[in-house]
Design a protein around this nucleic acid. Sequence first.
DNA 1: AAGCCTGAGTTCATAATATGGACTTAACTG
DNA 2: CAGTTAAGTCCATATTATGAACTCAGGCTT
Lengths: 169, 169
Amino acid sequence: MTDSLLVRRSPVKPCDCNLARSFELIGDRWTLLILRSAMYGVRRFDDFQAELDVPRSVLSARLAALVDAGIMEKREYREEGQRARVEYPLTEMGGELGLPFFAMTAWGDKWLGEGEPHFGLQSRANGQKLKVMLVDERGKPVKPRDIQYVVDKKVWPPEGADKPRRQPG
Amino acid sequence: MTDSLLVRRSPVKPCDCNLARSFELIGDRWTLLILRSAMYGVRRFDDFQAELDVPRSVLSARLAALVDAGIMEKREYREEGQRARVEYPLTEMGGELGLPFFAMTAWGDKWLGEGEPHFGLQSRANGQKLKVMLVDERGKPVKPRDIQYVVDKKVWPPEGADKPRRQPG
DNA sequence: AAGCCTGAGTTCATAATATGGACTTAACTG
DNA sequence: CAGTTAAGTCCATATTATGAACTCAGGCTT
């Protein structure tokens, strides 16, 4: 009965890892906070600036990087009888960060929250609360104990070794 | 038929937001990469250092912060006939970042990946691939169109306004 | 027309962090 | 006893962030 295997390297090198790549793109405090606001619908330079109190020069650089990455779009728009303005809406790519962000919100609610969380999701159809889960191909929820990592079609860590100490979920 | 409402502030102030709080704790490139490796089972100082090529002084500071936050634990252990060593396993709190990280991985696979992803999850019981989804209280998957934001028990954005341009999922 | 306001930035001097390499310390090992 | 390994610390330099002030264009007011 060994204690759990000593894992000395990740099975996916950081440079081949889409999680690591994502973090390269958006894994920085201001970028994440900008995206949080964007997810709620904020779109204008000065509104991001006022809400987050981010230095204007940093905001400018971060928005440019997000546009460059395809996560936001820079767009001119014109309200009735107003001059043209700039807005930064999320693209489809950016919008789909909603799921990881909501999973992260749930984590924060559980581990950092005081009292009831302010924010949640519900079904428009029946008002039921929604949560993020791991499901199998039939849509059936899976228990944490039943989860295995797979790397390049092989179970990981290799046979004989214990499973990693922690599993998602 | 107005164009979508101009949202000028998030409905949850950053300082009251558990998502923003999470980002304060772990929203930094090295911290995220350290946690990625930790999720795969890496636990030792030099192994994090070698895998990520992170400056030792930065690694030291980040690990201390993660321990302080309760996300990792600093622990002495001793292998058979070896001297005592230090390891940094994830706590339960840290392990539960698996779900948001996996959601993020799926996003990266879709939008940044080239070719087939290297990493996935499967059911131990039947080998089925697993994915992250939004489900209602009965465990039924929900379509993106059917999702509403709720802030302090009220639907948001307020009635009359359009929904935010993008929805999670 | 002159001056004011607003949104969306840019510029720049200073402050805070990161970086990389060398150094330290405490067990073991041959 | 000298060498090695793991887990750090220390420090000079380089990079990035910060905050305040400035720019610029279009529209509004009188």
